[in-house]
């Protein structure tokens, strides 16, 4: 069983979706994340064990390699595709047992900003590490974040911005969220954001890369 977990983690790490997928070339014609997840389920392994012992392991390795500039966005997206092939099979099991995921993460690009690549990468990495992700999209107003947090009281909120001008909106939204419920945890990220800005606006965490957000969630939520 351990060997199968490791094979599946490897497929996630290197973005091997299924047997038909030609990527990566050194795994051509080998079974991918889709087939291996099916085999583990057939053998009676729980969806939670597959998630924890294989998928998260693989996704964490990708996150670390991305942080270290050993892989780039396309490789991370291939891993996300492999992850999707596995999660499609696991999601019906999680639906029957909603407590099996680590927690909920609400993410969105702040009002006034339409950029979404950074947000999407964080969203994929967080989901791939075992959290339910509620993606509110781009150009999201404070009240939409607050409404989502009300529906998911223990959720952590992630705010993304690419422009220096929308950092102002990030500050307004963080203040509004905290005013509504001071216990709501707010993470911030994006090219112009830094630790100093995070502290100044009263957010709880700044991460320069997706894996940093995952590590913060693992420390504080999981």
């Amino acid at each position: 069983m351990e060997k199968l977990f490791e094979q599946l983690a490897y497929c996630i790490e290197f973005g091997k979706i299924n047997k038909q997928s030609p990527y990566p070339p050194n795994m051509k014609d080998q079974e991918g994340a889709g087939e291996l997840t099916g085999q583990l389920l057939d053998q009676g392994v729980s969806a939670d064990d597959i998630l924890q012992k294989a998928l998260i392991v693989g996704m964490e390795r990708v996150g670390v390699k991305f942080r270290e500039n050993k892989v780039f966005v396309p490789q991370v997206l291939m891993s996300a595709k492999a992850m999707d092939a596995a999660m499609i099979q696991l999601k019906p099991h999680f639906a029957n047992n909603p407590g099996s995921q680590k927690g909920t993460f609400i993410i969105g690009t702040v009002e006034g900003d339409l950029h979404d690549i950074g947000k999407n990468l964080v969203s994929m990495m967080v989901e791939g590490n075992g959290y339910e992700v509620i993606d509110l999209g781009t150009n999201v107003k404070a009240e939409v974040f607050i409404e989502a947090a009300e529906k998911n009281p223990k959720a952590v909120i992630g705010l993304s911005a690419l422009l220096t001008t929308t950092m102002n909106n990030m500050e307004k939204i963080t203040i509004a969220i905290k005013k509504h419920n001071k216990n709501t945890t707010v993470c911030v990220g994006g090219a112009p954001v830094n630790q100093e800005f995070c502290e100044r606006i009263g957010a709880d965490n700044y991460s320069p890369d997706p894996q940093g957000t995952v590590e913060f969630l693992n420390r504080t939520v999981a």
Binding site: S21, P22, Y23, P24, P25, N26, F72, V73, P74, Q75, M78
Partner: peptide, 10 residues
């Protein structure tokens, strides 16, 4: 620019 190398899909 995307850093797609030879090992990536077509």
């Amino acid at each position: 620019l995307a850093r797609i190398d030879d090992s990536m899909p077509e």
